[in-house]
Amino acid sequence: MQQRLIAVVAGLALAATAGAAEAKDWKKVKIATEGAYEPWNFTNAQGKLEGFEVDLANDLCKRMKVECEIVAQDWDGIIPSLTAGKYDVIIAGMSITAKRKEVIDFSVPYAQTPAMLAVLKSSPLAKIPTDKNYDLDKNKAEAEKQVEKLKAALKGKVIGAQVSTTHANFLEAYFKGIVDIRTYKTTEQHDLDLTAGRIDGAYASIGYWKPLLAKPAGKDLVTVGPTFTGGPFGAGVGAGIRKADADLKKMFDGAITAAAKDGTVKKLSMKWFKFDITPEQ
């Protein structure tokens, strides 16, 4: 009886280790994106995922010689679903921030786009002059002076951002109590409210606003003020990976570095954004 029990336990242990070893052999990688953040990633009229990151992910997978499946996942659950194991990688315009790093790991960045405020052309806020980029890490004092100027201009206004983004965190960190912050499930939803005049402005990355403003849907909008990087905005956009999957992170690091070096990232960036968002090396 006891012998049989030992045999069963040993068998189970073996099965367990076999299962674990199998999981680490990355032949297939499941990648999640949001599918509502044009042109980074979006769903077209045929119901298919498209965009800069979809092209990039396919390119990276080819480099890593793995089979990839790209799925859509709502933004507000994208990190909990990664840690719950629903997929292996997030490629969804996600900035690498200290706070997110407490929960998940990131690859090296594949994009860098500053944040910017967009308002209605008809709004008095449209008069805020555009300015250069300020980094909240490298040039903190000067950047915060700009923030103070914005605070005065935006006092009492309603400003939107997508929930759980660096933009929402930026508003929380610097504008709480000064502006009425509204958070949305998708960027598309704050655009609808911005064009309708329910909110006075919205924060998103310049890589989102520029292409939108060039389209008829964004004809009533204009970007104003300085752009920001660093601080709550983190260190560029990277692929989110579970902390346990260090091997997968290494694979993505290698592939992204190679794709940045041979100009693939720049090529895709020009195709989708019409400007280069390759991060500085």
């Binding site: 509502a36 077209n44 119901g47 998708t186 609808l192 064009t195 849907a217």
Partner: peptide, 16 residues
């Protein structure tokens, strides 16, 4: 899951 509501939301967002 792409059912009526999600498809409508995707369409609404994409076409405004």
């Amino acid at each position: 899951l792409v059912e009526i509501m999600r498809q409508a939301t995707v369409g609404a967002g994409s076409t405004k």
